[in-house]
Amino acid sequence: MSRETAELTCIVCPVGCRLRATVEDGQLVEAQGNSCKRGAVYALDELCAPKRTVTSTVRVEGGFLPLVPVRTREPIPKDKIAQVLLDIAKIRIDAPIRIHQIVAADVAGTGIDVIASRSMSRVSAPRAE
Protein backbone atom coordinates (compact mmCIF):
# COMPACT_ATOMS: atom_id res chain seq x y z
CA MET A 1 0.00 0.00 0.00
CA SER A 2 1.50 3.34 -1.02
CA ARG A 3 0.43 6.62 0.48
CA GLU A 4 1.95 9.90 -0.64
CA THR A 5 1.28 13.48 0.35
CA ALA A 6 2.75 16.34 -1.61
CA GLU A 7 2.63 20.12 -1.92
CA LEU A 8 1.96 21.13 -5.52
CA THR A 9 1.29 24.24 -7.50
CA CYS A 10 -1.53 23.65 -9.91
CA ILE A 11 -0.59 24.56 -13.47
CA VAL A 12 -3.95 23.89 -15.09
CA CYS A 13 -4.67 27.59 -15.39
CA PRO A 14 -2.83 30.81 -14.64
CA VAL A 15 -4.34 31.15 -11.14
CA GLY A 16 -1.72 28.71 -9.85
CA CYS A 17 -3.46 27.30 -6.77
CA ARG A 18 -1.20 25.79 -4.15
CA LEU A 19 -2.40 22.26 -3.45
CA ARG A 20 -1.79 19.77 -0.74
CA ALA A 21 -2.78 16.37 -2.00
CA THR A 22 -2.65 12.83 -0.69
CA VAL A 23 -2.71 9.85 -2.98
CA GLU A 24 -3.11 6.24 -1.90
CA ASP A 25 -2.95 3.31 -4.32
CA GLY A 26 -3.55 5.48 -7.33
CA GLN A 27 -6.56 7.16 -5.71
CA LEU A 28 -6.79 10.74 -4.55
CA VAL A 29 -7.82 10.57 -0.92
CA GLU A 30 -7.47 14.22 -0.06
CA ALA A 31 -6.91 17.53 -1.86
CA GLN A 32 -6.76 20.98 -0.31
CA GLY A 33 -6.23 24.44 -1.74
CA ASN A 34 -7.70 23.88 -5.17
CA SER A 35 -10.32 26.39 -6.24
CA CYS A 36 -11.86 24.17 -8.92
CA LYS A 37 -12.36 20.49 -9.73
CA ARG A 38 -9.60 20.48 -12.29
CA GLY A 39 -7.13 21.06 -9.47
CA ALA A 40 -7.98 17.70 -7.91
CA VAL A 41 -7.60 15.94 -11.24
CA TYR A 42 -4.27 17.67 -11.74
CA ALA A 43 -3.08 16.60 -8.30
CA LEU A 44 -3.91 12.95 -8.97
CA ASP A 45 -2.24 13.04 -12.39
CA GLU A 46 0.78 14.90 -11.11
CA LEU A 47 1.40 12.38 -8.33
CA CYS A 48 0.60 9.20 -10.26
CA ALA A 49 1.26 9.95 -13.92
CA PRO A 50 2.37 13.51 -14.58
CA LYS A 51 1.47 14.91 -17.98
CA ARG A 52 2.34 18.00 -19.97
CA THR A 53 1.24 19.57 -23.21
CA VAL A 54 4.25 19.81 -25.50
CA THR A 55 4.52 22.82 -27.77
CA SER A 56 7.27 23.13 -30.33
CA THR A 57 7.84 23.78 -34.02
CA VAL A 58 8.22 21.66 -37.13
CA ARG A 59 10.16 22.53 -40.26
CA VAL A 60 8.09 23.54 -43.27
CA GLU A 61 8.85 23.27 -46.98
CA GLY A 62 7.51 26.05 -49.17
CA GLY A 63 5.73 27.86 -46.35
CA PHE A 64 5.28 31.51 -45.55
CA LEU A 65 7.61 30.82 -42.61
CA PRO A 66 10.34 28.17 -42.27
CA LEU A 67 8.66 26.69 -39.18
CA VAL A 68 5.13 25.96 -38.11
CA PRO A 69 4.18 25.86 -34.43
CA VAL A 70 2.73 22.55 -33.23
CA ARG A 71 1.39 21.04 -30.02
CA THR A 72 0.26 17.74 -28.68
CA ARG A 73 -3.52 17.54 -28.90
CA GLU A 74 -3.63 16.58 -25.23
CA PRO A 75 -1.09 16.45 -22.45
CA ILE A 76 1.32 13.52 -22.79
CA PRO A 77 3.24 11.61 -20.11
CA LYS A 78 6.08 13.76 -18.86
CA ASP A 79 8.65 11.03 -19.40
CA LYS A 80 7.85 10.97 -23.12
CA ILE A 81 8.57 14.67 -23.70
CA ALA A 82 12.17 14.18 -24.80
CA GLN A 83 11.22 11.52 -27.30
CA VAL A 84 8.36 13.59 -28.68
CA LEU A 85 10.63 16.59 -29.15
CA LEU A 86 13.21 14.47 -30.90
CA ASP A 87 10.64 12.84 -33.16
CA ILE A 88 9.13 16.10 -34.29
CA ALA A 89 12.57 17.65 -34.79
CA LYS A 90 13.05 15.25 -37.69
CA ILE A 91 9.79 16.06 -39.43
CA ARG A 92 9.47 18.32 -42.46
CA ILE A 93 6.00 19.05 -43.73
CA ASP A 94 4.83 20.78 -46.86
CA ALA A 95 2.83 23.99 -46.91
CA PRO A 96 -0.02 24.83 -47.16
CA ILE A 97 -0.95 23.85 -43.63
CA ARG A 98 -4.37 23.94 -42.01
CA ILE A 99 -4.74 24.71 -38.32
CA HIS A 100 -5.09 21.52 -36.23
CA GLN A 101 -3.89 19.37 -39.14
CA ILE A 102 -2.15 16.24 -37.84
CA VAL A 103 1.59 16.64 -38.11
CA ALA A 104 2.55 13.40 -36.39
CA ALA A 105 -0.01 10.75 -35.47
CA ASP A 106 0.44 8.78 -32.25
CA VAL A 107 3.68 10.53 -31.46
CA ALA A 108 6.27 8.43 -29.63
CA GLY A 109 3.68 5.74 -28.96
CA THR A 110 1.66 8.00 -26.68
CA GLY A 111 -1.53 7.53 -28.66
CA ILE A 112 -1.72 11.28 -28.99
CA ASP A 113 -1.30 13.31 -32.17
CA VAL A 114 0.84 16.33 -32.73
CA ILE A 115 -1.19 18.98 -34.52
CA ALA A 116 -0.42 22.30 -36.23
CA SER A 117 -1.11 25.36 -34.07
CA ARG A 118 -1.79 27.62 -37.04
CA SER A 119 -2.60 27.71 -40.70
CA MET A 120 0.15 28.62 -43.11
CA SER A 121 -0.08 29.48 -46.77
CA ARG A 122 2.31 28.22 -49.39
CA VAL A 123 4.53 30.82 -51.01
CA SER A 124 5.37 30.45 -54.69
CA ALA A 125 9.02 31.27 -54.11
CA PRO A 126 10.25 29.31 -51.10
CA ARG A 127 12.50 31.21 -48.74
CA ALA A 128 16.14 30.88 -49.64
CA GLU A 129 18.01 28.71 -47.19
Binding site: S56, T57, R71, I99, S117
Partner: peptide, 22 residues
Protein backbone atom coordinates in the same frame (compact mmCIF):
# COMPACT_ATOMS: atom_id res chain seq x y z
CA UNK B 1 4.17 32.70 -28.44
CA UNK B 2 3.80 29.07 -29.47
CA UNK B 3 3.27 27.84 -25.90
CA UNK B 4 -0.15 27.04 -24.51
CA UNK B 5 -2.09 28.93 -21.86
CA UNK B 6 -4.08 31.41 -23.92
CA UNK B 7 -7.83 31.73 -23.96
CA UNK B 8 -8.75 29.78 -20.83
CA UNK B 9 -10.92 32.52 -19.42
CA UNK B 10 -12.45 33.78 -22.64
CA UNK B 11 -12.70 30.75 -24.91
CA UNK B 12 -12.70 28.03 -22.24
CA UNK B 13 -9.91 26.26 -24.08
CA UNK B 14 -6.21 26.22 -23.46
CA UNK B 15 -4.81 27.46 -26.74
CA UNK B 16 -1.36 28.35 -28.01
CA UNK B 17 -0.65 31.92 -29.09
CA UNK B 18 -1.03 31.22 -32.81
CA UNK B 19 -4.35 29.44 -32.25
CA UNK B 20 -5.65 32.33 -30.18
CA UNK B 21 -4.49 34.71 -32.90
CA UNK B 22 -6.12 32.69 -35.64
Amino acid sequence: CIHNGFGLQLLSQELTGPEYAE
